[in-house]
């Protein structure tokens, strides 16, 4: 393999890893607070790409306005999903909440098929991201630089919010002990809404960049990236934001490298992530950076 192709694979791996990381953060934040796998997260991601598509093609917005609109609307959509599907089940058995999450995911997918149509649509890529940069003989698309950059920026902002602000402190308190946080005067419902908002905003960011990199929109496009991002969150240690990012990069990179070095295994690409998941769950269920929690009797 020449240096050129290897560098291209490396940059593709970084970009895919960033996308997984952005989506994984949403899973990990929600899991940290509610102990719930938000199955609908991948579909929230899918909705964001369609919002961009319709903002640009139907409402003729310039691309950057469309991006901002998509990010805000997706955040609101995340809050809506939590209100409708999870809030009334907060004290129900785990299995009910999980079925509700699966149901919500399924409902969004089917609504998307009805509203957006099953035929693939092309994501409107801004001219700017379509260029290719040449370093000596190595050609790398501009998007491959932007995607990791924006991911790192988003991560820094997120870590600042979680660690330094009052809201972030409240979020950490809720995830540590839900009842005690409520007794301390924290409005748990608001904090959960904020968590869903932030997770969905990151999913929208991921969705937009996914659209730039893979501009083929279908209503079921959220399924696989969603599952893989969840796997990334588990690899890093679910509930841990940095872990989700590490897991995302690890998964994205190893997936691209698998295809790069073993092209005959390309068909097994989707199975590969699940194999990693099962191996991680068996060896270290708390993930790479996660803390061990024993069950209380």
């Amino acid at each position: 393999m020449s240096l050129n192709t290897f560098m291209q694979h490396l940059s593709n791996g970084l970009a895919l890893g960033s996308l997984y990381a952005l989506i994984a953060i949403g899973y990990t934040m929600v899991y940290g607070i509610l102990r719930l796998i938000n199955f609908a997260h991948g579909d929230i991601f899918m909705v964001s790409t369609y919002i961009v598509f319709y903002s640009v093609t139907l409402f003729l917005m310039p691309w950057w306005v469309a991006f901002v609109v998509a990010i805000l609307l997706t955040g609101a959509f995340g809050i809506l999903v939590e209100r409708l599907a999870y809030r009334s089940l907060r004290n129900s058995p785990k299995i009910s909440v999980m079925i509700s999450a699966i149901g919500a995911s399924y409902l969004i997918q089917n609504l998307a098929i009805v509203i957006f149509g099953g035929r693939p649509k092309a994501f409107p890529i801004p001219e700017f991201f379509n260029k290719v940069v040449y370093i000596n003989t190595i050609s790398i698309p501009v998007a491959n630089f932007f995607i990791p950059g924006i991911t790192i920026a988003a991560l820094v902002i997120l870590l600042y919010i979680v660690n330094k602000t009052k809201t972030g402190m409240a979020m950490r308190a809720v995830s540590r002990d839900y009842e005690a946080a409520r007794l301390m005067g924290i409005n748990v419902d608001t904090i959960i809404s904020i968590t869903f908002f932030m997770g969905s905003v990151l999913a929208a960011l991921g969705g937009i960049m996914w659209g730039i990199k893979y501009p083929n929109l279908i209503p079921l496009m959220g399924l696989m990236p969603g599952l893989k991002a969840f796997i990334a969150a588990v690899i890093g240690g679910i509930g841990n934001i940095k872990g989700a990012v590490v897991g995302g990069f690890l998964l994205g990179m190893s997936e691209i490298m698998l295809i790069a070095f073993l092209p005959s295994m390309t068909g097994y690409r989707d199975a590969f992530a699940f194999v990693i998941l099962i191996v991680i769950l068996l060896i270290k269920p708390s993930g790479l950076l996660g803390e061990n929690l024993a069950e209380k009797v």
């Binding site: 719930l36 796998i37 785990k94 299995i95 999980m98 599952l227 969840f230 796997i231 588990v234 068909g267 097994y268 989707d270 199975a271 699940f274 194999v275 998941l277 099962i278 769950l281 068996l282 269920p285």
Partner: peptide
């Protein structure tokens, strides 16, 4: 995978069914 519980078990079984399909 039976060592896992609840949602982890769900995801792992879902994973296996996807692996079989792939």
């Amino acid at each position: 995978i039976l060592r896992l519980r609840d949602d982890y078990l769900a995801i792992a079984t879902l994973g296996f069914s996807e692996i079989i399909r792939v």
